[in-house]
Design a binder for these strands. Structure first.
Length: 872
RNA sequence: GCGGAGGUGGCGAAAUUGGCAGACGCACUAGCUUGAGGUGCUAGCGCCGCAAGGCAUAGGGGUUCAAGUCCCCUCCUCCGCACCA
């Protein structure tokens, strides 16, 4: 009986996260002020503190947190807690990217309305986040599917419409048959839907709403240069996506016709080397030729069919270049030459003008194509080298050569073709521009084309306007109507913007979700039929909804003023908090969310709502969480559930493992044994601290050396972690450093309460250990803080400051090498000079043995580092 | 093909500036302890070797007293882009 009582009390004293974590969670839930940002308006006391806006990307409420979320939030939470302890006024919010297709799919499957399903998922995930102990200010929570939020999407849409930033046009758009909706270019990956990598995207001609992101193309591009707080990888991806290209448009007239073919080229300086014009198979002029040429029409059809097949098989790159001669000719406006017009499969319809001038001598692709079809290759660019230039001009004068018989590189000191350089290269055989440098010629020739009305210098972008119409139900209704009869000055069915007073346009409830094409809203008569706000006559509402990336483009501004019902947010509040000091999320949003939200920020700046021109000063992209070497996925069956980990080891151990197993930017291999290891470590800290708290705290400090050593380790640990939070973010080594400290405390354990470490010193060690644990294991830190008699919340206690004097080593080990190989390690006082170290090294017996019978050639002594004796 | 990140024990990793390679943890081995259930403690743990010693950071070359780290070449993995005129 007595034994069982004792074992129960022992069990209670043991580290039991299942007991302490819910206890603290309940207390934190009851105290709304704990994680609340102070002074949203930036007034009062908060002004005295520097602000810090710490943000993790908001999740889609699927209903389940996954390990990627856990890792993302563990990083952000550690940073937020650290910044609080450093005395910052921290904004650390969370919200829900709550519109989107999965809710409709769930509705189809379970017959649950999307709103109900989504809100239930949010409740479940919010609870998971609380269980994780994440320090969010729930008073600022944002849920994008609620009218309080999405009415501001509509408001922004109207503002953009007023300024011509939102417009409607008919064009080829990407259609995902799985989603039964249109996608933006950014949402098409390798010709497939970003959500369905087994579903090919189709092209459809539809009239859609677009946002004019291209207006900001240059700003978006140039801004990247200054964004040194963003990973170079993301900046590079965005630069490639924007794809700015400077060149010229030149019109080639079609011979014996009034038609013209505009070509885009970045190398107008090579135009005297053009030996054909190549059209994309979709080009209008090609279609025109095909209309009266059945054979050509058939070949173009075949070309398009092949491209489609290649897209389906996924290896678009493997497709061989081929083309067909249309039999027609175009006139080179610079020299009046007739060149054949071909249709070729390597010409992209949606880049530039869908037509090029082919210059085989100075372009890899044109060269390959000309070789295949025996088209002439004419050299018009040579390196800037007088002799070579002269030699070349003589050889080339007036000669058109085919690729096959041009063996220039074998016997003649002439560049291998194609020669694509433009720096330090000059023109030959190019009329009045012969002898000009390529760079100069480009400017002069574009100006010439402009002066003579057949072209101009121009800039093209790969970036296209953002198509935001979605033929889906669960999204923000677009606040536009079509006036059925048309009032004064407008067409019947013309577009009419709703006035602001008509917002929000509410998404109707009780809508039948189907997988058919066309927005489900189109089948809701009550919604569709409305009155024209201008003439009062009958009108039809726009039934498409907005891309959900609209929601996430500005949500982080709403956090600064989440309850505002008169405006999306108060500018003064946003201006206090912005830019985001640290944004943390996955790299998969590099050219989706992260480019759209930069665009939105620039548009809001132009609307006068904010003062910053970029949303986030610093961006961190964490690595993936993998298992058995592969990304976790249901199909691979290697998903590890955060709930299960928390149940077995506690939230502290789960989060801390996510930070310990790898540096945060690298991929992390999830190993459950590792979580168990962290759990044992936390149990050890708990046991040591509780034992200390329960025993004598007064010691006599008998062992000064042991005390100095412990203090040294303590202050080295503080210094390391403090530096890492503002620098490398290598939390794995931060946690390793804490483990080293704990190992030293444990080594001192038997005598520590008996008195060989004095009371104030051991108190200092436990106090600071607890503080350093707080960002990584908040539940345990709170528990220990209380046991140690700490006042208030541990997360508001000032972060410890490292004392460089206490951290300083007295003695250090210096490796001694002979010929670069380690012989021994000697101990010398820190700061010893070279002579002292050398003397100590030479006095060592092992060193002497090594040197016996040999001559010392050289001795290298690097104070504080090593000694290397070179002998022969 | 182009661009980026990587390649270090059985595993996750460390080495921030060219200066003891493998900190910290996992797994494993041995011993002690505990004893109804992921317990605690001690010791060992890169490879070869009884040892002395030798070898080792994808592979090869180079610079240097000294290279995981700098330079050149090659191979492999992952990510992004991919006929962008």
């Amino acid at each position: 009986m007595a034994e069982s009582v004792q074992s129960t009390s022992e069990a209670q004293g043991r580290y039991n996260p299942a007991e302490i974590e819910p206890k603290w969670q309940a207390r934190w839930d009851a105290d709304a002020s704990l994680y609340a940002a102070e002074g949203h308006s930036g007034d009062g006391e908060a002004r005295a503190k520097p602000k810090f806006y710490c943000l993790e990307m908001l999740p889609y409420p699927s209903g389940q947190l996954h390990m990627g979320h856990v890792r993302n939030y563990a990083i952000g939470d550690a940073l937020a807690r650290f910044m609080w302890m450093r005395g910052y006024n921290v904004l650390h919010p969370m919200g829900w990217d709550a519109f989107g297709l999965p809710a409709e799919n769930a509705a189809l499957k379970n017959d649950t309305p999307p709103a109900e399903w989504t809100l239930a998922n949010i409740a479940a995930m919010r609870q998971q986040m609380r269980r994780m102990g994440l320090s969010y200010d729930w008073a600022t929570e944002v849920t994008t599917c609620l009218p309080e939020y999405y009415r501001w999407n509509q408001w922004f849409f109207l503002k953009m419409y007023e300024r011509g930033l939102a417009y409607r046009k008919k064009s080829k758009v990407n259609w995902c048959p799985q989603c039964a909706t249109v996608l933006a270019n950014e949402q098409v990956v390798d010709g497939r839907c970003w959500r369905h990598d087994d579903t090919l995207v189709e092209q459809r001609d539809l009239t859609q709403w677009f946002l004019r992101i291209t207006k900001y193309a240059d700003e978006l591009l140039d801004g990247l240069d200054k964004m040194d707080g963003w990973p170079e990888k993301v900046r590079t991806m965005q630069r490639n996506w924007i794809g700015r290209s400077e060149g010229a448009l030149v019109d080639f007239a079609v011979s014996e016709s009034s038609e013209k073919i505009a070509v885009f080229t970045t190398r107008v300086d090579t135009i005297f080397g053009a030996t054909s014009v190549q059209l994309a198979p979709e080009h209008m002029v090609a279609k025109g030729f095909a209309a009266s040429d059945a054979a050509l029409a058939g070949q173009i059809e075949e070309m398009l069919a092949q491209q489609k097949a290649a897209r389906e098989s996924g290896d678009l790159g493997a497709i061989e270049k081929h083309g067909v001669d249309t039999g027609k000719f175009a006139i080179n406006p610079f020299n009046g030459e007739l060149v054949p017009i071909w249709v070729a499969n390597y010409i992209l319809a949606d880049y530039g003008t869908g037509a090029i001038m082919s210059v085989p001598a100075h372009d890899e692709r044109d060269f390959e194509f000309a070789n295949k079809y025996g088209l002439p290759v004419r050299r018009v660019i040579v390196p800037r080298d007088k002799n070579r230039q002269q030699q070349d001009q003589e050889r080339n004068a007036g000669v058109l050569r085919s690729a096959q018989n041009d063996n220039v590189s074998v016997e003649n000191p002439v560049e291998q073709l194609p020669y694509t350089a433009k720096d330090d290269a000059v023109l030959i055989d190019s009329g009045q521009w012969t002898g000009e440098s390529c760079i100069e010629a480009q400017k002069k020739m574009a100006a010439f084309a402009k002066a003579n009305g057949f072209g101009s210098a121009t800039v093209t972008y790969r970036l296209k306007d953002w198509g935001v119409s979605r033929q889906r139900y669960w999204g923000t209704p677009i606040p536009m109507v079509y006036c059925t009869n048309g009032h004064a000055g407008t067409e019947p069915g013309g577009v009419v913007a709703l006035p602001e007073s008509a917002l929000p346009v509410l998404l109707p409830a009780q809508v039948k979700i189907t997988q058919q094409g066309g927005s489900p809203l189109g089948r809701v008569a009550d919604f569709v039929n409305t009155a024209c706000p201008v003439c009062g006559g009958p009108a039809r509402r726009e039934t498409d909804t907005m891309d959900t990336f609209v929601d996430s483009s500005w949500y982080f501004y709403r956090y600064t003023d989440a309850k505002n019902s008169a405006a999306p947010f108060d500018s003064a509040k946003a201006n206090y908090w912005f830019p985001i000091d640290q944004y943390i999320g996955g790299v998969e949003h590099a050219i989706l969310h992260l480019i759209y939200s930069r665009f939105w920020t620039k548009a809001m700046l132009d609307l006068g709502l904010i003062a910053n021109d970029e949303p986030a000063a610093r961006l961190f992209t964490q690595g993936m969480v993998i298992k058995d070497g592969a990304k976790m996925s249901k199909s691979k069956g290697n998903v590890v559930s955060p709930d299960l980990m928390i149940e077995r080891y506690g939230a502290d151990a789960t989060r801390m493992y996510a930070l310990f197993a790898a540096p945060p930017d690298r991929d992390l291999e999830w190993q459950e044994e590792g979580v168990a290891g962290i759990s044992r470590f936390l149990a050890r800290v708990h046991r040591l601290t509780m034992k200390y708290a329960a025993t004598a705290k007064e010691g006599v400090g008998a062992d000064a050396a042991a005390e100095a050593k412990l203090l040294r380790t303590l202050h080295q640990t503080i210094a390391k972690i403090t530096a890492d939070f503002s620098g490398r973010w290598h939390f794995n080594t931060c946690i390793a450093a804490i483990m080293i400290l704990v190992n030293e405390v444990a080594a001192a354990e038997p005598p520590m309460d008996a008195g060989n470490i004095s009371g104030p010193v051991i108190a200092e060690v436990f106090r600071n250990l607890t503080l350093m644990l707080a960002p990584f294991a908040p539940f345990l830190a709170a528990e220990l803080w209380q046991a140690l008699g700490g006042e208030g919340a541990v997360f508001r206690v000032a972060w410890p400051v490292a004392d460089a004097e206490l951290a300083r080593e007295e003695e250090m080990e210096i490796p001694v090498q002979c010929n670069g190989k380690l012989v021994t390690v000697i101990k010398v006082p820190v700061g010893s000079d070279a002579a002292t170290i050398q003397a100590a090294a030479l006095a060592d017996a092992k060193v002497a043995a090594r040197m016996e019978g040999k001559n010392v050639v050289k001795t290298i002594v690097v104070p504080g580092k090593l000694v290397n004796i070179v002998v022969r």
